[in-house]
Design a protein around this nucleic acid. Structure first.
Lengths: 215, 215
DNA sequence: CTTGACAAAGAACATATGTTCCGGCTATAC
DNA sequence: GTATAGCCGGAACATATGTTCTTTGTCAAG
């Protein structure tokens, strides 16, 4: 079966309408846009399109139609939304937010910057302690959730004790037996590594990618 | 204003419904799902949600509602595809590809990392000359196409003459009268700035953002 | 030419769906 | 207590919207 020009215009209009409104048009709106005065003619053509498997319809439901292969703007799996949980101190640890469940916002990340497997989340870096690792104040890091990381990797960890260091921080991670060294990556001597008991550290994940926007 | 549990359930249901049907639910469908017998109560709560800027409504239109920040698969303008033209030397300029029109591939970039206006494209950085600007070998830069840049900005420029420097390169850009200094950002003395006649330089654009993926 | 399938227009119809109004309930403030 | 505001339920209402029917015109096949 062949797609007639009027039917092609209907398809295009549906796509445009959904792009603009986030919901499909009515039969009458389609008619007005394509230049069809009768609702029955629109209905007729929608039936043809349905036969051709180009759209799906839910009968007796207003705006009950969808495109079978929507020309999705975000091209399938090329982008994912991950939660942006807030700020992380690259310098001194900062306390965990009271309610970690409340996600401030989501951020869209290209699939090419995401881990190939596993969950991921994002944080905004505050401070300059990882400057030598090319991570700066204001950058957004994408973190792959995982309970362990290898030595030398950039990791997001929570320090439980001692109290004066407690909080979540971004550091290079080195494990020696049951002690863990958290090392900043800044030549400035005001940034010093510190050691913590392994049992007092919880690893959230390792840094997978970095996003930076220049104002 | 506080989000009441019933309103939260309404939001969640709208999201689920859209994910499943590709169009929004009716007031009555929301009521049935959330356990509200009266359409007026659903309407009332939708008005509250609209006040809180959590949804938008088109009155007198069936299913005329949308989530303001839809976790929707087709999240509108949140992502754009831009061409990834290939590699650029952060160190020595590299020749322009014979056919700049042939785009090797496209890359999806979140709108938050794109310039608010104008065209953009992406390049993969090769070399370490911009290491102090936190741009490293392998990073992808997003470039806003523009014919001029301000002094000190990181810019993608093409050098036409002299022949031994000809090519496209990534440098900090400084203009003094009719001469242009192209300055790398690496303390290593093997990276040296150089001066070129302004008429022998073509500016492609300035660096808008940086993406880095750790293997 | 006649026939039948297809496309279309217009009108009438059925109902799906948003809107409005009224009353009741609960909690808090006065 | 009373008063007020926020929230809810129910029903009547208006209309937005899909469905169906009849009629007309076109075009290719017989």
């Amino acid at each position: 079966m062949k797609l007639r020009p009027r039917q092609k215009r209907i398809l295009e209009f549906i796509q445009e309408y959904i792009d603009e409104h986030d919901y499909p048009p009515t039969i009458r709106e389609i008619g007005a846009a394509v230049g069809i005065s009768s609702t029955s003619v629109v209905n007729y053509n929608l039936e043809r399109l349905e036969e051709m498997k180009l759209i799906e319809r839910n009968r007796e439901v207003s705006r009950g139609l969808r495109l079978v292969k929507p020309k999705d703007k975000r091209g399938g799996e090329r982008v994912r939304e991950i939660p942006l949980y807030g700020k992380i101190a690259a310098g001194k640890p900062i306390p965990i937010p009271d309610d970690p469940e409340t996600v401030a916002e989501n951020i869209a990340v290209p699939a090419s910057l995401l881990p190939t497997s596993g969950e991921a989340f994002a944080l905004r870096v505050e401070g300059h302690s990882m400057i030598d690792a090319l991570v700066n104040d204001g950058d957004i890091i994408v973190v792959r959730s995982q309970p362990e990381v290898e030595n030398g990797q950039m990791a997001v960890v929570e320090v439980l004790e001692p109290a004066e260091l407690a909080g979540v921080t971004l550091k290079r991670f080195y494990r020696r037996d049951d002690k863990i060294e958290l090392r900043p990556d800044n030549p400035d001597p005001s940034y010093q590594p510190f050691w913590v008991e392994a049992e007092h550290v919880r690893v959230y994940g390792r840094v997978e990618s970095v996003l930076r926007k220049y104002s």
